[in-house]
């Protein structure tokens, strides 16, 4: 536990020693802010038009701030995470392997699992900081409208779980190579595939639809954004994380016998 904490602290610090954390957090906030502005502006335009046009006003969904601002916002944030998360995770092991520091790290009296969990947790912490900064958006919505609080809270829980899942895969990809770019492309590509699976359901073999819709990363966020915490979705993300961290451990161990 103590070693886990030491590695966690060291990794967290090194995110801030290098420009990575600052750059990723800044870009993340700029893009999400831009999306938030657009979504919110579109919503207010529609609201004005609805005042003039009774036909439009009958489409309640459009005028529900939770439905037309909060949900799309979470959807957008999750896509931006998909792009940026691999940039946070790519260095975790690839950098250590390239510079050789992994040799010293693994000859210190630490267990592999402490190293993996420490690095994973540090990255999740950075991600957590990113999410906390976005709290400004719901606060703004709350000031100018009456959103439901429930879906916002569950939406954040969903985003957090999904981000952790992205990170767990990124950590795994980072153990496979000593090239950071390869690690980033690999994790981005695979996560995108998992993501896209949700869109291709219509063309899938009927027998596969069930499996694919369960595997697809995006499907499981839907519930959270609606305000539902489905234990199935939570278990899906936790399973995904555990599988990736397990694979990371194996990949790390394989270095030992592959030589």
């Amino acid at each position: 536990m103590r070693n886990f904490y030491l590695i966690f602290k060291k990794e967290l610090k090194s995110y801030f020693y290098s420009p990575i954390a600052y750059v990723v957090i800044t870009i993340f906030l700029i893009i999400t802010g831009y999306f938030f502005y657009n979504i919110f502006a579109a919503f207010s335009t529609i609201s004005f038009q609805a005042q003039m046009n009774p036909g439009l006003a009958r489409q309640y969904n459009l005028l529900n701030i939770t439905e037309s601002v909060v949900r799309p916002l979470f959807g957008n944030i999750s896509v931006i995470m998909l792009v940026l998360m691999p940039l946070l995770t790519m260095r975790l092991f690839a950098e250590e392997k390239r510079s050789g520091t992994i040799e010293l790290l693994l000859t210190y009296p630490v267990r592999d699992i402490e190293v993996v969990m420490g690095k994973f947790a540090a990255c999740v912490a950075i991600f957590g900081i990113m999410l906390i900064f976005t709290f400004i958006y719901p606060v703004l919505i709350k000031i100018y409208g009456q959103p439901e609080l429930g879906p916002i809270i569950t939406g954040y829980i969903g985003l957090f779980l999904m981000g952790a899942a992205f990170i767990s895969f990124g950590v795994f990809a980072s153990t496979l190579t000593e090239n950071q770019v390869v690690a980033a492309v690999l994790s981005f590509g695979v996560l995108l595939l998992f993501w896209m699976m949700g869109y291709t359901l219509a063309f899938a073999d009927p027998g596969l639809i069930g499996i694919m819709s369960y595997i697809a990363l995006m499907q499981h966020l839907e519930g959270f954004a609606k305000g539902v915490i489905d234990s199935g979705d939570v278990i899906y993300y936790l399973n995904f994380i555990m599988l990736c961290l397990f694979l990371t451990l194996r990949a790390l161990e394989s270095k030992k016998w592959r030589g």
């Binding site: 020693y17 510079s99 520091t101 040799e103």
Partner: peptide, 8 residues
């Protein structure tokens, strides 16, 4: 080759 964390 003395691998150390350069950013520490």
């Amino acid at each position: 080759n003395v691998p150390l964390y350069k950013d520490m």
